[in-house]
Each structure stands twice: as structure tokens, then as C-alpha cells.
Design a binder for these strands. Structure first.
Length: 127
RNA sequence: GCAGUGAACCGGCUUGUCGCUGCUUGGAUAUGCCCCCUCGAAGGGCAUUUCCAGGGAGAGGAAAGUCCGGGCAACACAGGGCAUCUCGCUUCCUAACAGGAAGAGGUCCGAAAGGGUCAGUAAGUGCAGAAGAAAAGAACCGCCUCAUUCGUGAGGUAAGGGUGAGAAGGCGAGGCAAGAGCUCACCAGGUCGGCAGUGAUGUCGAUGCUGUGCACUCCGAGAGUUGAAAGUUCAUGUAAACCGGCGAACACAAAGAGAGGGCGGCCCGCUCGAGCUGGAGGGUAGAACGAUAGAGGGCAGUGGUGACACUGUUCGUAGAUAAAUGGCAAGCAACCCUUUCGAGGGUGACAGAACCCGGCUUACAGGUUCGCUGACUUU
RNA sequence: GGUGCGGUAGUUCAGAUGGUUAGGUUAGAAUACUAGCCUGUCACGCUAGGGGUCGCGAGUUCGAGCCUCGUCCGCACCG
């Protein structure tokens, strides 16, 4: 596989197939949470870690706020995804926001960090 | 200046750094085809994959609500009648509209500028709770006349009373037994005629013609249905496959019959017609087109009171698809607060394209420009 | 993105195609709630009572839960 730069987030690194999403949510997935963020993940056969971000209309009615949170999470993942680097094999991760309050960017950054660390630990221990 | 009011417009800017989605230029890499060549390599061309470097573009005035109107697409479509829905002061603008412009009338708010709101139909039909005598061919009390057994009875009368959203257009005078458009003046409205205006309407004259509201009716104009998840192509898939019900034809010809469908909902009439319908299932969850040059914007001129139209010139302006247009930091302008006048602190709204336009409506920090008004108060 | 439906007592729903100002009373039902009766007690049953900005704001009308417009929520459908 082509070596993907450290701090990039291209289309290949995003989950955008309907089928993959159905597998992720219906199949045997594991989850980690650091309120207000929750991550659902499972191993995939692609060999590349792919993510998606979801902010429900339930918590934020206006699209502007939803977009902002999604951008914060994406940015936090982009800059910290090397925390998962030692793992071989790909993961599919879905980040879900479960609060109706916005947080400053540093906080989101920390939450994503703890989640990535926990995912790393869990996957290591299973292997 | 201040206050009010109407209209038009703006909706931050700059830099650094790390990213995202298209486009584009150059280079590298791999694959396929072609040229060259006896063949291969090297070389050249085209297409595609991946990578690297550079360049350039990337949310709104409402992108929103989806309330109207169109373009566009698919399907449907001889015709007539009935029904349904929408619009409704006038003239104009427009692709079209329930939108806009200019104008006319009533009514409400305002001191004014100005703003809100209403509506076709004095031709017909029906209805109008409670209250009230009575809700439209009106007599309860009252008033007047006559009769009277003095209890009241017969008749006339819409001036007064109370009820009500609405009580026979209002008000004054004459008139009368008492009254009444019964007669007259003035006022409000209608009808007819003259004049002005394209017209709504205004005005002058004539005419006693005159209750309120709603619904239907009537008049004029319009409406095929669906909605880009429309639809077209490719890929994948045994999918016109299986079971039940109804049905023609096959079964001489003609006539007749014919399940079921189409002609907007119904009827007439016309027409298609060998399939129609119920059950139980299978596959896809991908790609491309649609899809970004359009009733486009700016400027100038001409016509028009204006919406707008025409002519010339100029500009290039998002195209994503589990859905990009961003994160962080600094500075500058703007506003607010504090101030020792050096500065310090704070605020920054409403809101995110999803085929595209024209409107309407709703949300909105703050700011700019122009016009109009000036009662109280102030210079 | 588009299309359609709904919002009425604490809860589940009726009602709706305009009908009652004053007076002693009113927008209903079921269930739930409160009180009383019944019973030795509870339940069942019976009787009475409270509880409503008809999602919100305007308009039309003499009068709006209903008609019209705006607005806020909730739900369903599409290939």
C-alpha cells in the first residue's frame, strides 16, 4: 500500500461506503467512549484505517454547529492518528458525538487522544 | 444635530502554518495500444493507474422555510358535458406567479412623512344561534282614529323605547288624526345619461332606487400527473422465472362477445385489447451522464412616471455525493465598557450549496448611502 | 433533496364541513388522580369532584378547536 503521509486525511481514509457502514454497525464491533465522544470500531480487510464522523441532528438542529464539531473531530484525528501507527492491519472507526454542547478545540483534541490510546491498548491486548 | 419614516446596499480584511475537494501545468512510475524496426531494447505518440512538485478556484443574503411560479425530465394526451381546485379594485411588467410597478376607493393607526388592512357579481337562491315584538312581505310597549258593556276590541302608524354585529340609509324642515322618501334641502351609496381618463374612478345632471353577514350560484381567467431519490446509460443478477383466480384467442367466415386498460375525477362518446390480478420470492445498495453559460452579473446609452424592455460593451463566477469549502495562531479596521488618555478588557449576529432560476416569507450583531416629515422638546 | 400526515385533560383518543353573550353548570369519552359510600380491611363496584393557553402568533368574522397566513415541534414515505 502506498505510504500515506502522517498528517493527511484523504478520501481513502474515510468510510464512505454504505455497505461498510452496515457491516460496522451490525457486525461484531467494539466501542470505546470518552464523553461526549464515542467510538465504534472493527478490523477490516483493506489494510488501511478508515474513519467516519457522525453528529446527530438530535443534538444539534443547525447544520453549522454539526459541521463545526465534525471538523474539530476530523482535525484532531488527523493530527494524532500516528497513535495507531504501530498496529498492522486496518481498522474502521466511527466517531459519534453524544452531547448537545459544543466543546473548545483543545478539549476535543484530548478526547480523541484518549480514545485512540484506548483503542490501541484494546487491540494490542487482543493480539 | 435629534426623533421618526421609506428605499437601496454591505454582511469583515490581511498574514503564517497544517489540511480537504475539483480543475490545470510539468515530471516520475506502471499497464495497454500505435509508430519506428527483420525482431527486441532504446526512442516517440495516445489513454489510464499511482506518486511528487507548482499554479489557480472553492457557501449565502437569506444557501433556510418549501409558501407560490417557471425551466428541465419521464409518463399521459381525438372531442364534448358535468364536477373539483386556484386567482379576483384598475392598467401595466414578466417565461410565469398568489410576485412586482404605477394608480383608484373604503377603513384603521399616526402630529406628519408614511404604514396596515379590505374587495369581482345591488341578477338570483338559501341560512342567520342567543337576545329581541320582529332577522325581511316586521306592530311588544308606545302614538293616533273609531267603537266600547270602560275590561277591552277593530284599524292606522316605523317618530320614540329596549335587544343585537345587523332593525328598513342618516339628519332637519314641511306635511299628517298620528306617522312614513309621503314631499323638499343637505349628506352616504346605487342606477341611468353627459363630460374627463386606456381603466379602476372622478365630476355634473336626472332618478326615492337603498338593512347586515355568510354560503351557494353566476361572471372572467387559469390548472394533465409526478419531481433530479425525476430520468438515461453501463456493470451485477437464471428473473418475461414459480403458484392461485379471472379471461379472449387457438376452434371456417361474418356478426357478436371479450378480462382488463386509456382519454386528469365522473358521464357520453371514442379507442387499445391478450393479457390482467393476488400470493410468495430473487438481484443490485456501484459507476457515469443529468449537473452547472443561465429568463447570468457589472457598466454605458435609448425608451418608459415606474416595474421593465432594447442596444452596445465587459466579466468568468462552487460542483461535493455518509457529502469538500476547514483547524490553530497573530494583526488590522468596526462597536461597547473602563481610563491615570499611555492603554487595558470584551463583543462579533442569523446561518452551510445538493439540478437551476424568478419571487414571497421568516431569522439576523453591526454598519453605509439617499429621499421625506417635524406635533411636543432642543440648538 | 423531495413528498405527505399530525399536534385537544397526567395518558390514549373522539369532536371538527364555523354557533351561543349573560344567568346556577358545561369542549366530550375511556383510563389515571382526589374524596365519599360499600367492606372487618383491600380490591371490584357505585357516587361526586378537580384537572384544558385545543402547539404558538396574527388575520377573516358579530363569533375560530374548526377557515386563511406565518411559525415551532413530531412522524411516515421515495431509489
Amino acid at each position: 500500500m502506498a505510504n500515506v503521509g502522517l498528517h493527511t486525511l484523504r478520501k481513502e481514509e474515510r468510510l464512505c461506503s454504505r455497505k461498510a457502514l452496515e457491516e460496522l454497525f451490525s457486525g461484531s464491533h467494539q466501542s470505546v467512549s470518552a464523553f461526549p465522544l464515542r467510538a465504534v470500531y472493527m478490523a477490516n480487510e483493506v489494510g488501511l484505517t478508515r474513519i467516519m464522523v457522525s453528529v446527530s441532528k438530535r443534538y444539534f438542529k443547525r447544520a453549522v454547529k454539526r459541521n463545526r464539531i465534525k471538523r474539530q473531530i476530523r482535525e484532531a484525528y488527523r493530527l494524532q492518528k500516528d497513535l495507531l501507527q504501530p498496529l498492522n492491519g486496518g481498522l474502521d472507526i466511527a466517531f459519534l458525538w453524544t452531547s448537545n454542547e459544543e466543546l473548545p478545540t483543545e478539549k476535543v483534541f484530548q478526547k480523541v487522544q484518549t480514545i485512540l490510546q484506548r483503542i490501541h491498548e484494546n487491540v494490542e491486548s487482543v493480539v
